[in-house]
Design a protein around this nucleic acid. Structure first.
Lengths: 344, 344
DNA sequence: ATGAAAGCGCTAACAG
DNA sequence: CTGTTAGCGCTTTCAT
């Protein structure tokens, strides 16, 4: 890893000056060098098996061709597709991705971003959920090329790529309503997360629009996007409104909690209780019954985020103010076996 | 992102020379500077909100404090825990991780490794499955600090961290045997993958040791580690040996395929057919029935790989030949609801 | 304990 | 088209 072959070595071998070798090696500037020289340099580089030193280049050019990507939890199956999408897009453009996990810890997020910036990443993609924190403000102010993913920028002008949660919940409610359900509950996600709030709010609006039974007792917030909280919330719903025939869960794990709650109260899904999820996590199609859920195009989210970031990075940072659009990706409904018309 | 505060700015602000500022800022060399100066420099750095330039530092020190990690497919739930384990370990030591996906493409792997090396990563962790390829040889020869994970180094002296597949299959067979099964099938993984081969071979040995019915007809290879191939393989088994009461699958997805096959032949799991998986993928505990499976400590695998890599990176690369040990992590059996004594 | 000077490997003006 | 000359921001001898 040490006896480096440097550009000067190649230049010497080819009998030219280092700068000429540099130009010949770089596809962008190659046109400016005579064809024979290019050939000679390339040949010399091959012979010496020259490997360019990206760090030195980065120091000189102020571009490292790396981007940072921060996720709260890589083990949450939402995130790998996003990362892959980003990687596919940016990797194609020659970038490498520095990935970091925060475990939803704001402090870790700060240090991680600081470290990424110290490493001179050319851009940053944040998929961490914390609401309007000043970290984003700071990054915007420092003119870091930044794209938020799966998350909004509250008032800061920042590009963001998110799923259209309103459309998704609307899809779920419309499906449930079209099956003939009238008493429909909602197991909401935690109110501290924007996803939880938006979905709950939209559920109520959609319930009104579809003339469902609207009752605050038909909404129960789960403390966390997990199976157990989902079970608890659904039990509360079931006990409060035994006439409830369907429940729209804010997330697949919560929906699986509803399965457990239903079983516990001797109700069969979907005959006695229809359940919808959200996200279309891997393997929910293999559950018993297979879960009807909202499919969010996470992979594409990564793609689009990558495209946005590329554009931001291309743009001269001190020219006009950036456009900062929020791109909302439309989810789709995947009907499986967990929803059916109500019994009577 | 441009109006950088450099070390010289800090030095000027503190009224010292850049080199002194450097020493004061670096915890390693701080001891050599007078306490008051240290204080003055730190204060100046804070005032100017100085951010060190890791790239410049890397160019000088030949250490970038980044490591590369390459996985075949981040969406395969095995890998995120490994990545997290690595990240936790290496992140704690101040390293950032450059992650790459190969999609099992040897060509992509090569270019990715080349790119990582160009970025001067201090070490490399490869979780890609390809058998003895020359890439590894080359890396070893180039003295790159390298750890293989979830995969063996065939003859090259390379550190590797893997799960002990023999122990795992033994666990599964012992469990099944202890329940009283005698006619036990094996849905094997693809023979092209070492995992598939090793598990199949071990199954046979364990079957003999536990005095099960040994019959080539009780082993069926699935073309790929997926549900559908698993279903097909299990159907073949079921049709060949209708007296089979249990099946050890080489992987959880194959096991889920066995569920489907059993259902298709009107057999109930576990009453009519016990099924074991391998890996303890997320959510297999939520399947119906919950899957009895072999739990591989993937997170710990990442940890151990991180520790090994740290050690390799610490070591002077041109001193003695490296130790190159293969660490085998012991899996455990998680008994759930998919296994039971045979009917009679 | 601190300063001076050199240079990591590369690219980008500027000349010729 | 090619060579010369300067550094990018930092660390590290070597003096003092």
């Amino acid at each position: 890893m040490n006896d480096r072959v440097t550009l000067r070595d190649v230049a010497r071998e080819a009998g030219v000056h280092a700068s000429t070798a540099s130009r010949a090696l770089n596809p962008e500037t190659r046109g400016v060098v005579s064809e024979t020289t290019v050939h000679r340099v390339l040949e010399a580089a091959r012979r010496l098996s020259y490997r360019p030193h990206a760090v030195a280049r980065g120091l000189r050019t102020n571009r490292t061709m790396t981007v940072g990507m921060v996720v709260p939890d890589l083990e949450n199956p939402l995130f790998p597709p996003i990362v892959r999408g980003v990687e596919a897009e940016l990797g194609g453009a020659g970038y490498s991705i520095l990935v970091g996990n925060t475990d939803n810890d704001a402090e870790r997020l700060r240090t991680m971003v600081a470290s990424l910036l110290a490493h001179q990443v050319d851009g940053l993609i944040l998929a961490t959920a914390a609401a309007h924190d000043d970290l984003v403000d700071e990054l915007v102010e420092r003119r870091v090329a930044l794209v938020l993913v799966n998350r909004f920028a509250e008032d800061v002008p920042t590009s963001a790529v998110v799923g259209d949660d309103r459309a998704g919940i609307e899809l779920a409610v419309a499906h449930i309503a079209s099956l003939g359900h009238r008493v429909v509950g909602h197991v909401a996600g935690p109110g501290v997360l924007s996803t939880g709030r938006v979905r709950a709010k939209t559920f109520l609006e959609a319930a009104i629009r579809h003339r469902l039974d609207v009752d605050p007792g038909l909404v129960e917030e789960a403390g966390w996007f997990q199976v157990e909280p989902g079970r608890h919330a659904c039990l509360a719903l079931l006990d409060r409104r035994p006439d409830m025939t369907a429940v729209v869960a804010a997330n697949d794990l919560l929906a699986l909690g509803c399965y457990a709650a239903a079983a516990q109260r001797g109700r069969h899904v979907p005959q006695d209780l229809s359940v919808t999820g959200y996200n279309d996590m891997p393997f929910v199609d293999l559950m018993e019954p297979a879960l009807t859920t909202i499919c969010v195009p996470y992979r594409e989210m990564g793609h689009v985020a990558g495209v946005s970031l590329l554009e931001l990075m291309r743009r001269n940072p001190d020219l006009p103010s950036p456009p900062a659009e929020t791109i909302r990706l439309t989810p789709s409904l995947t009907v499986r076996a967990s929803t059916a018309p109500p019994r009577s």
